[in-house]
């Protein structure tokens, strides 16, 4: 019986060859120096373009933008930008609208996410079944995701128009209301309207991702569940959901980040009105930018980043046991 060596002998690498092409066996110090310099140079050569690209186009703007948050940076005078410490943050937190805007942001995320998830999941389950023209149905369902959010906002703004909008027209015709509701004129109904538009838009995203995950579940598992006599509901919660739990969790995380960073629909439908009552943090940031208050807009950007980082950390910690369970 031939015993395998415990430690595999390393194959001489071409990178480890000395300049004369002979493997540098037994030439201690000089071999290590030559090897390190060349290997290091090549690693650097491969690493540098990507690092430069990311550094110039991603990190420099982030850092540059972040330092604006600590300066008085206003359109009225962009030449003189003195350091003001946390003054921009104090301005934000003491603004009378801040409480409403923070609450709106939470409502916007939660009230958009939950229906998007449930309807998207249901759609994905439905589209997973084989039926005639399934491809066509899938294309139709996924189509909204290809449209600009701002355009969707403009379309829904007209649909929710109190006098000329199709939503009121339908509701009156089916007898649910007697006269048109001025949807975008009242803070509560305006918030409902923008969330409805966002739910319509975001359902597609969940449907796409969840359908892809569902298609990865082996048929054998469903057959085994059927043999064990599991009902459809039991199969859904005992087989399907646990199998795709990681995808679901990460999709929810991504969606929370995107919804929070998605001002397009609100901006196009209400512009944050009436009376700032439908603003979320990101639409407020746009308003500040348009007003020329770049320092405050940048501070709002940093606050959003901080919120999302904290949320992501807690969320990933919370879903960790599930990952183990699936693994």
């Amino acid at each position: 019986m031939v015993q395998k060596p415990l430690v595999r002998r390393r194959r001489p690498s071409s990178l480890a060859a000395s300049s004369d092409g002979v493997p540098g066996e037994g030439s201690g110090v000089s071999r290590r120096r030559t090897f390190t310099a060349r290997r290091g140079f090549i690693i650097l050569a491969f690493f540098l373009p990507a690092a430069l690209f990311v550094g110039v186009f991603t990190y420099y703007p982030i850092v540059s933008g972040a330092q604006m948050a600590f300066r008085r940076w206003q359109l009225s005078n962009l030449i003189d930008n003195p350091w003001v410490g946390f003054h921009n943050f104090v301005t934000i937190f003491t603004d009378p609208s801040f409480g409403t805007i923070a609450l709106n942001t939470v409502i916007w995320v939660v009230a958009s996410l939950v229906p998007q998830f449930i309807i998207g999941f249901a759609l994905a389950l439905w589209l997973r079944r084989r039926f005639r023209f399934r491809g066509l149905y899938q294309a139709l369902v996924f189509f909204p995701w290809a449209i600009s959010g701002f355009l969707i906002g403009i379309l829904f703004r007209w649909m929710f128009n109190g006098e000329f909008g199709v939503i009121n027209d339908i509701l009156i015709k089916v007898g649910l209301i007697d006269k048109g509701i001025p949807w975008l004129a009242d803070p509560t109904t305006a918030m409902v309207a923008v969330i409805v538009a966002n739910v319509w838009y975001g359902v597609t995203f969940f449907a796409i991702i969840i359908l892809a995950a569902l298609q990865s579940v082996p048929e054998e598992l469903f057959e085994a569940a059927a043999l064990d006599g599991a009902s459809r509901t039991r199969t859904l919660f005992a087989v399907t959901v646990p199998y795709i739990a990681t995808t679901l969790a990460l999709t929810v995380l991504l969606r929370v980040i995107w919804i929070l960073n998605f001002p397009d629909i609100i901006w196009a439908m209400t512009g944050g009105g009436p009376a700032n009552q439908t603003h979320i943090v990101t639409t407020w940031m746009i308003t500040m930018t348009q007003n020329g208050n770049y320092g405050i807009a940048s501070a709002l950007g940093l606050i959003i980043v901080a919120i999302l980082m904290v949320f992501s950390a807690f969320y990933l910690l919370a879903i960790r046991p599930n990952k183990r369970q699936i693994g």
């Binding site: 109190g162 006098e163 001025p182 009242d186 009436p274």
Partner: peptide, 12 residues
């Protein structure tokens, strides 16, 4: 005026 004119801008 129409009640929804609270939110009316140029296009409306």
């Amino acid at each position: 005026s129409p009640p929804s004119a609270v939110a009316w801008g140029y296009p409306e």
